[in-house]
């Protein structure tokens, strides 16, 4: 019927292409990331008894981030002198790719998952491990003092949260007996893991907030101390590319938290699974945003000490509790 264009039309309408381009892929990530920027401003404003964005649309400034996007993308693009231009531009754009890759691993509904791989949960945590290295690279390449300090802080911060993050995820793996995220959701059909894994969920939430570099753990970009840290030198559209991964990671981590602790897309069948998945994710996102607007920033030595003592001990205690729940008292 369409002749030579038929293969192209087949590709554009294939399910995988739809998922990658539309949902849960690139288009939805861009739109949701921008909407989260608006939501964050509104939630913070509500907590601090302000109004927040108001004028950018009839519906309470919901288009504010899109207006910012247009403004930033039409600013002059220049690279500061003596900086390493390749790494300076490469680091934030690669950060965007990493954030989008995370969303591809999440099962949003039965079958609505871009990459259903056997090692979904470790793959998610392994991909996210790359992002502090990119922050360090961005800070180093800018040839400026504030970005350099911010990059080093990101490096130290990673050592504080990384091991408790992995060990708290181990509790879920022990309960489910699988690394596949879709099968972890299926294992929760008898009960959500947040009840037996309450301690693990708490550690996972705290460490994932530290991983996302959000308040109270936003040391690498601490606005009031080191002037946006590693993002200080980024102009216009590159600043957008440096800010974007933060919101994409917030979305991806909240979706992962929902998947492994809150039963993912499971819920009463009067509404579609996608609705349950997205509404639970939204609740987790708002919770993380409330942490941002209520807690002050910790110091780096406090974070390191808490990560290596309190969080690590609690993670090992959580493994012990999970062992008792799964196997029972050992007899040796």
């Amino acid at each position: 019927m369409l002749g030579p264009l038929q293969p192209l039309v087949d590709m554009v309408t294939s399910p995988l292409f739809l998922m990658i381009v539309l949902f849960p892929g690139l288009t939805s990530i861009a739109i949701i990331g921008a909407l989260l920027g608006w939501l964050e401003r509104k939630v913070t404003a509500r907590v601090q008894l302000r109004i927040g964005p108001l004028y950018a649309s009839p519906a309470g400034g919901i288009l504010q981030m899109f207006a910012d996007l247009i403004k930033l993308s039409f600013k002059e693009l220049f690279v500061p002198e003596n900086s390493d231009a390749f790494f300076f531009i490469m680091a934030p754009t690669t950060g965007l790719v990493i954030g989008a890759a995370l969303v591809g691993l999440i099962p949003f509904a039965p079958g609505l998952q871009i990459a259903n791989i056997e090692v979904g949960l470790p793959a998610f945590l392994a991909i996210i491990t790359l992002s502090p290295s990119l922050v360090l690279l961005a800070g180093w390449s800018a040839n400026s003092k504030f970005p350099f300090i911010g990059g080093l802080r990101a490096l130290f911060q990673q050592t504080a949260y990384e091991i408790p993050l992995w060990l708290s995820a181990l509790g879920v793996i022990m309960m489910a007996g699988t690394l596949n995220l879709a099968q972890i959701v299926a294992a929760q059909s008898t009960g959500w893991f947040i009840i037996p894994q309450a301690l693990g969920a708490f550690i996972f939430l705290v460490t994932s907030v530290a991983e996302m570099e959000r308040l109270p753990f936003d040391l690498p970009e601490a606005e009031s101390e080191i002037m946006m840290g590693w993002q200080a030198e980024y102009p216009g559209v590159l600043f957008l590319a440096a800010q974007g991964p933060g919101f994409v990671k917030l979305y991806a981590f909240s979706a992962l938290f929902t998947t492994i602790y809150l039963g993912g897309f499971l819920g009463p069948s009067l509404l579609p699974p996608l609705f349950w998945m997205l509404s639970k994710t939204l609740v987790v996102i708002v919770l993380i945003m409330l942490l941002r607007s209520t807690f002050p920033r910790v110091r780096l030595d406090q974070l390191l000490r808490a990560g290596w003592t309190t969080l690590l001990t609690l993670a090992i205690v959580n493994i012990g509790i999970t062992y008792l729940l799964v196997v029972g008292l050992p007899t040796f």
Binding site: V12, S14, P15, F17, L18, V21, F23, T27, A109
Partner: peptide
């Protein structure tokens, strides 16, 4: 062709956006 509830027109909208 319908993929998991996304109508075909959705592909074109997504393609247009990107």
């Amino acid at each position: 062709m319908v993929a998991q509830g996304i109508p075909e027109i959705g592909a074109y909208i997504g393609f247009l956006f990107v």
